[in-house]
């Protein structure tokens, strides 16, 4: 039996030599292949798409109506016009950004596909880059319609924050990726037992980053911790912008500096956890 014309051996040695010379350390093609893989998945599953919009919409509507009620009861809340809804939307960037990153990774665990991927030329950095891209895509699918709902229902225009929104977004998404990276490293090392961590870890930031109240509300000792967290500056900045029409660029630079430190630490942590998973031999035998 010959393989000629059967397709099993259609690539000759010359093809393979070319493939070898095409090998590069970081390949946009391979990142694109992974993004394509996840886009296939999203397109094949309307519940996955719906989930991206459902909870952000529910949360925004709940907080928006609460703000409306408080505004009618007291002048204080009226002054804070948009602060609640703005905080909800920005919190969703932080939370959904991390969850989008982690869930995209978890899809490989659920489908028992990680071993296949690990045996391709895909590098960890390319895999992480694809997770970042998917985090942005998933976030956009949820945030854009919900922000339009906020405009329609409560007159809050997230996009009207302009450059301030860009600064808020960059800082929040960097924090979300740093957390997501660590969560994925833990899952690699500990298996699906660490899945709950991926879902819940960001919530520890909800009280500490002062999403819905000023840092001054916290006990003094806790304020030091809050000031060490990049998102705190974003939510303080949002309130400053909405209530006082003032944008504190210095705070955003501090937040960015902290993010660089945390993200670098997350990269180191992920690398160590990945190596530890290779030592323990857990990479091949992962799954549901």
């Amino acid at each position: 039996m010959s393989l000629k014309g059967t397709g099993l051996n259609a690539m000759g040695p010359d093809d393979m030599s070319r493939a070898a010379t095409d090998y590069v350390a970081i390949s946009p093609r391979r990142v694109g292949a992974m993004v394509l893989r996840y886009s296939y998945l999203l397109r094949s599953s309307w519940p996955r798409l719906l989930d991206l919009v459902y909870w952000p919409a529910v949360q925004m509507l709940m907080w928006g109506f609460l703000q409306t009620y408080l505004a009618r009861q007291s002048g204080m809340a009226a002054q804070a016009g948009g602060a609640f809804i703005g905080a909800v939307l920005l919190w969703d960037i932080l939370f959904r950004g991390q969850v989008g990153f982690s869930i995209t990774f978890l899809e490989e665990m659920w489908s028992r596909n990680l071993g296949n991927l690990m045996m391709t030329p895909l590098r960890p950095a390319e895999f992480v880059a694809a997770l970042m891209v998917m985090s942005l895509i998933r976030l956009a699918i949820g945030l854009i319609p919900v922000s339009l709902l906020a405009l329609a229902f409560f007159g809050f225009n997230l996009w009207g924050l302009g450059l301030a929104f860009a600064a808020f977004f960059v800082n929040l998404i960097l924090t979300s990726w740093a957390i997501g990276l660590l969560a994925c490293g833990l899952i690699l090392k500990k298996g699906m037992g660490a899945e709950a961590f991926a879902w819940s870890v960001t919530f520890v930031l909800l009280p500490l980053c002062c999403v819905y109240y000023p840092v001054a509300t916290l006990p003094v000792w806790l304020q030091f911790i809050a000031r060490a967290l990049p998102p705190t500056y974003v939510f303080e900045g949002l309130r400053d912008l909405v209530l006082n029409r003032h944008f504190d660029a210095t705070a955003m630079i501090i937040s960015l500096g902290l993010n660089v430190v945390y993200f670098a630490a997350a990269v180191v942590g992920f690398s160590l956890l990945l190596r530890s998973a290779r030592v323990s031999g857990s990479l091949l035998q992962t799954g549901e």
Partner: peptide
């Protein structure tokens, strides 16, 4: 890695993709 491949009962192809 570009010259290797493998098949194992420990892994599967993503089920939702064609």
């Amino acid at each position: 890695l570009h010259r290797i491949n493998f098949q194992s009962p420990y892994v599967e192809m993503p089920l939702r993709l064609t």
